[in-house]
Design a protein around this nucleic acid. Structure first.
Length: 461
RNA sequence: GGCGAUGUAGCCAAGUGGUAAGGCAGAGGUCUGCAAAACCUCUAUGCGCCGGUUCGAAUCCGGCCGUCGCCUCCA
């Protein structure tokens, strides 16, 4: 297969560019992960699904991908929440990390190759700060805080597109101990009795922006191919990452920057602080992980999308229609040597054009229609459809039919017992015994009494 | 105020010069014991508004209006 030319919208240049990796056939990609202090919501889900899809696509067209996605486990929010809950910050971080992993699993988001945590990279951060101080890009204020000196870094404002100093006025009026409002904290000093870590600069906590720069340096070195994140992170987070890393290394930090659009609720950004969020966990009560993924992928990743129940239901109906095709298959096995070249080519072209997943999804419906009409090579078409769905990251093991949840199973058992008791009443013992035998084969003994019929699990007696 | 997006049918959403993908919802039909699923047909002479460039514009240019994001923690 010929590798398609990938174009992606580089936020750094604000234009669509051909992707040319540093090393041929290799991609190093870092995406911003969560701050683990509370449940992830659909906005987070979108971001994680989009990066998962980028990575899956790169792998599909035979790039050797190294993907890192961090976990921010030091943060004021974690500390504040943990105080409220009366537990250690690191314990809260672990609890929330497990929940996050569970959400990622439900959404079929792949494990990244590296998942660095801030708390596990403190020495790297110390070294980073020391390097910046030695080069004159950082200073320690009287209160012990260490700040990055923005005025010394001449290339500040690449992502934000700042043209002159006057535009670069922060809304923050509080200088604290900073020399300039634009300067940002690399290290925040705290009293010994407050939560923090020992460092060469005293007791305190690292700044958020520093974390990503230090971990990227640790995993990938000075330059990576792609850095991704939500578009709300472009400023100041990503701008500051660039400043730190390029100041220290005197070379380009990330060659391409990709940013995903926001999920809106009633026209407003879904966010914790607005309180208008739907957690992944709660959405999964009504819709499948595949439906959430379908919802995300049916819009271009850079657009903002509105979360509505109607949209999620539409996504659920859409994905159900596609999976209906595999409803009677025991399991889905993909033979990569039996793919429809025309559809695959179209599919690749769409994804290669800045990951146009909406168009890529339209290919699946074209194939589905042919299969449902029994036109063409059905085995090849089904195989192609399954493969495309897997590249988009859908979970092919989610069964549509012949499976039901525990509540439904229990109610069906009750229904069977009712039918059997009705049969006994009308002396249809053949049917009653047939049902009894069926339960016994499944490992349950039926015991009739005046109070009704009890179900005894033989393996638990 | 600065920076950046965006406005396409009831809803979601593709489409950067050649005559409006796809999905959801809806209507009618085929099939069916009844359903479900599937299939067929229908659903924007028009892409926020007004001008301009062009043989030709949703697409390019200018103006206007609306919406959103960032500039403060945020995916």
């Amino acid at each position: 297969m010929k590798k398609p030319t990938i174009k992606l919208f580089n936020s750094l240049k604000r234009s669509l560019e051909e992707f040319i990796p540093l090393e041929e056939n290799k991609v190093s990609i870092y995406t911003c992960g969560p701050t683990v202090y509370d449940s992830s919501h659909i906005g987070h889900a979108r971001s994680f699904i989009v990066w998962d899809c980028w990575v899956r696509f790169f792998r599909e067209i035979n790039y050797e991908v190294k993907w890192a996605r961090n976990i921010t486990d030091i943060d004021d929010k974690i500390i504040n929440r943990s105080i409220q809950m009366g537990i250690e910050p690191q314990k809260l971080a672990r609890i929330e990390t497990y929940k996050y992993w569970k959400d990622m699993h439900s959404l079929n988001v792949q494990w990244p190759d590296y998942e660095p945590k801030a708390t596990e990279n403190l020495p790297q951060m110390f070294a980073f700060i020391e390097g910046l101080m030695q080069k004159g890009f950082a200073y320690q204020a009287e209160n012990g805080d260490i700040y990055f000196k923005v005025s010394v870094f001449k290339h500040y404002g690449q992502l934000k597109n700042i043209k002159n100093e006057a535009e670069n006025i922060s809304r923050l009026e509080n200088l604290n101990s900073k020399e300039n409002t634009c300067d940002f904290a690399l290290w925040k000093a705290f009293n010994k009795n407050e939560y923090g870590f020992e460092s060469p600069f005293g007791h305190g906590r690292p700044g958020w922006h520093l974390e990503c720069s230090a971990m990227i340096k640790n995993i990938f070195g000075q330059t990576i191919d792609i850095h991704g994140g939500g578009e709300d992170l472009t400023f100041p987070h990503h701008e500051n990452e660039i400043a730190q890393s390029e100041a220290l290394h005197s070379c380009q930090f990330s060659r391409y920057w990709i940013h995903n659009g926001m999920v809106l609720v009633n026209g407003r950004k879904m966010s914790k602080s607005e309180g208008n969020f739907i957690t992944i966990e709660s959405a999964l009560k009504n819709y499948s992980g595949n439906a959430i993924r379908f919802f995300v992928l049916s819009a271009h990743y850079r657009q903002s999308v509105n979360y509505t129940e109607e949209a999620l239901q539409a996504a659920q109906n859409g994905i159900n229609k596609l999976f209906q095709i595999f409803a009677h298959d025991e399991k889905i096995e993909i033979d990569k040597n039996n793919l429809n070249p025309t559809f695959m080519d179209n599919f690749y072209q769409y994804l290669a054009e800045d990951l146009n997943t909406a168009c890529a999804l339209s290919v699946t419906f074209e194939i589905a229609k042919l299969i449902n009409k029994s036109e063409g090579n059905i085995i090849e078409l089904k195989n192609t459809l399954a493969h495309i769905l897997s590249v988009l990251g859908f979970n092919l093991t989610e069964k549509l039919i012949n499976s039901c949840d525990e509540n439904t199973q229990n109610s069906i058992v009750k229904l069977l017992l009712d039918i059997r008791n009705n049969a006994r009443e009308v002396k249809n013992f053949q049917l009653a015994d047939q049902i009894r035998l069926h339960f016994e084969k499944a490992g349950y003994k039926l015991k009739d009494s005046a109070e009704g019929t009890d179900l005894i699990c033989l393996s638990k007696v």
